[in-house]
Design a protein around this nucleic acid. Structure first.
Lengths: 212, 212
DNA sequence: TAGATTGTTAATCGATTAACAATC
DNA sequence: TAGATTGTTAATCGATTAACAATC
């Protein structure tokens, strides 16, 4: 089978959230038509997306909500356990640590790494804050699945270099900086606040222009 | 001319960041080839994207970095001034208020709205915290361009309803909830942490599966 | 000038949508 | 059973890439 398009993977969490919502409401079954009416998308796209996974026996009956959400959860690997570290526990970083369990289950935050002497040695929501000088050694000595990077743009690339050299496998990047991981097989998932706001900004400006 | 594809608009902030970086390094000119080598994309895509905007006189010479970044900035409306309010100044919300000026210039945060009696009446980085009960009236009585929504998933849709009814024009949505704004002409820009992490999670799980 | 590089058109590729036989 | 709904194939649509004349 051909490689599954990334656009499809990006839509799965959306389906999952919607199905979780319906499940929480006590709904039992939902058709692709009804689900997609709520999601404002074409039913054939949902069916096409699901067709990438596994041989469903042909079923001409609306989806079992609980079954489908488990299915999608399994595809996304929600049942797996991963470990994380956080680099740069400033305002945003600390907020992420505290909210982590609300975001996705199954992550253990092993530690946070900071430059600030006042913060080193303290804890954030039970997570110890270490000196960032020991970052590389920590990654080498522990099984760390992802590093959450929440430092300012300036030191972002240098810290990414340290992480990559130490053998990190994935970076969740909040720095608004495009990271270069060279030829290394490191996953980088970007959350660029600034790009998101600029995108919105474009349409706001556009609308202003129309009425001028 | 045909409508500009949203994918193109989404790439502009990336170009802008890269050009800003080169400009800060003191570079003067850059070719589409060199720029795209760094961005790991096809030069023809960059040129095609830029072609959507304005009639550039045909120039067969590498881009003037400062000129191009100003051009793209203008397209994205970075020179315009917008006003914002923040709904739900918890950890993430407060962090956003404090970092706002680092994200994109030109936004004034008029106020934050909270349910918590201890926070109402205080200030966050100079931004007053009001009672959320007054949210609708505030939006009606002030010119508010965007509402930043950083509340838990539970009350998200209800607050979106209040905002939409009060005439808000855009919502920057951090709630991990898909907001329904009905038929109203309201821009919704989503920053779904959970979707982003699940996307990364998929590839992590995938990689584990391969080696098992 | 000659080589490099642009803007733009045409070709390719992939993603979305429509159609429909299978079947609950 | 008949109507509804699925999974899947084919048609459409749009986005990306390649090619190239214009020109710095």
């Amino acid at each position: 089978m051909k490689r599954i398009p990334d656009d499809v993977i990006r839509r799965l969490p959306l389906y999952l959230r919607k199905l979780d919502g319906l499940y929480a409401k006590g709904e039992k079954r939902v058709s692709s038509g009804e689900l997609c009416r709520q999601l404002r998308m074409e039913p054939s796209q949902l069916r096409r997306d699901l067709a990438w996974f596994g041989d469903f026996p042909q079923q001409a009956f609306a989806y079992d909500i609980d079954g489908l959400r488990r299915e999608i959860g399994k595809i996304l690997g929600t049942h797996e356990e991963f470990s994380a570290i956080l680099v740069g526990p400033g305002k945003i970083g600390s907020a992420l640590i505290e909210h982590f369990s609300f975001i996705v289950d199954g992550y253990e935050v092993l530690g946070a790494f900071d430059v600030s002497p006042e913060r080193i040695g303290t804890e954030i929501a039970g997570v110890p804050v270490y000196d960032i000088a020991g970052l590389g050694d920590f990654v080498r000595e522990h099984k760390v699945d992802i590093a959450i990077l929440t430092v300012p743009r300036g030191p972002a690339q240098k810290l990414a270099d340290v992480l990559v050299e130490s053998g990190i496998r994935a970076i969740w990047n909040f720095t608004n900086e495009e990271l270069d991981v060279g030829a290394a097989d490191v996953l980088v998932e970007n959350v660029h606040f600034s790009d998101s706001l600029l995108h919105l900004n474009y349409y706001l400006a556009q609308r202003n222009g129309e009425t001028d």
